[in-house]
Design a protein around this nucleic acid. Sequence first.
RNA 1: GGAGAGAUGGGUGAGUGGCUGAAACCACAAGUUUGCUAAACUUGCGUACGGGAUUACUGUACCGGGGGUUCGAAUCCCCCUCUCUCCGCCA
Length: 422
Amino acid sequence: MLTLKLIQEKRDYVIDRLKVKCFDATEIVNKIISLDNQRKTLQSDTESAQKSMNEISKSVGMLMKEGKKDEAEKAKTQTAALKAKINEQTNQLKEIEVELQKNLVLLPNLPYEEVPQGKTAEDNKVVKMGNEIPTLTNALPHWELAKKYNLIDFELGVKISGAGFPVYIGKGARLQRALINFFLDEARNAGYLEIMPPTVVNQASGFGTGQLPDKEGQMYHCEIDDLYLIPTAEVPVTNIYRDVILDEKDLPIKNCAYTQCFRREAGSYGKDVRGLNRLHEFSKIEIVRIDTPEHSKESHKEMLAHVESLVKKLELPYRILHLCGGDMSFTAATCFDFEVFSAAQQRWLEVSSVSNFDSYQANRLKCRYKSADKKPQLCHTLNGSALALPRIVAALLENNQTEKGIRIPKVLVPYTGFEYID
RNA sequence: GGAGAGAUGGGUGAGUGGCUGAAACCACAAGUUUGCUAAACUUGCGUACGGGAUUACUGUACCGGGGGUUCGAAUCCCCCUCUCUCCGCCA
């Protein structure tokens, strides 16, 4: 969430910036400012009452010690009214703070200046394209290829779990493992520390990264234990730094993690969900960075370069989109999507989203850093997929189908141990 | 699942009603000394939100969370959560 300080000091700027996200913040911002001002007045008032109270209490102690019982009793009688006042005001303060908090979480993150104007995915700006789109004849979509070569059994998944939980078999399973190892190795070579986090998290973690309370319905929830299955490794890996004050010299922190990801995808159906296009469970390697405000943009560039190197090495036709204000997520300050072209479906498939959250997420997480003799200040957090497997697999299968089977990109062969799926 | 113990600052850990935002030690930072390193010594070292010339300084709150008793609570009482140990079960 945005900081109070920013809203107080740059009211008009905040409202103006949020217009890029097609969000009219005027009302909420005004409410927040008025609540905060009330809070300040009330707080000063309450604190001065508390001060008097503390002084009286102290004097009672002293008088008792000196054996002046009568005077002590007399002092005690002065406290009742004060106490009532303090109680009442403290309750009011709490109410105001709750209300303030409620309003604060309603405001999306401010988009950076360079974010394109626009409302929908149509307005996203293609900033780069790479690798040739292959021209295929009689190309099969990946779900048919998966059947033909016995790589993925979707029906079996339905039997065991339900739609959206495919079963990978033989070379299909090995391809998964190869991609996971390839992506992790690439990340490690780029300086990321490998983490293997839990895939089930508590409420506090869900709140920290912003899935809760707004996107509650997107996560699987184990009610008995009140735990959530993670929709992305971002959740556990970023929450490592919840309520943490880091040392400036430890930044930037660069972590990566492979996890299974679980998404309910409530409400989506139709041809978009065919095959591997949209799943309830899938594998993803995520890169996460914690950085200083001064360096986070540089970090973001490096992450984009890393993700681009992956799709390049996999020889997949790709394009990079700078998301417009309206299509960006609630929490992002700027975001680039990577899409690969799936030649049989003739569609671009999103395989990565690389975002800078500025201090928005850090403010929720209370993730701060400290330099020499300065006060702690909020970090910037960033993350991106590097990469999500299913759509990569869809594109690999479709684009590389040949007469003699499906060709594995050179860079993956050491990982798969085979050059063709046939 | 059964039984017990515990939760204090970055860490270890003292503290059974006021002089405790909190001893001591460790870690960390700055300085002094020594030819370097090390050692020794000195000093400093929590967070949040306020007030303030936004420097100095200063107020309030915070000892797992919430409530209560009291003029006054880290300390007493109640509830909750979590952690640890032992037993059982088990990958």
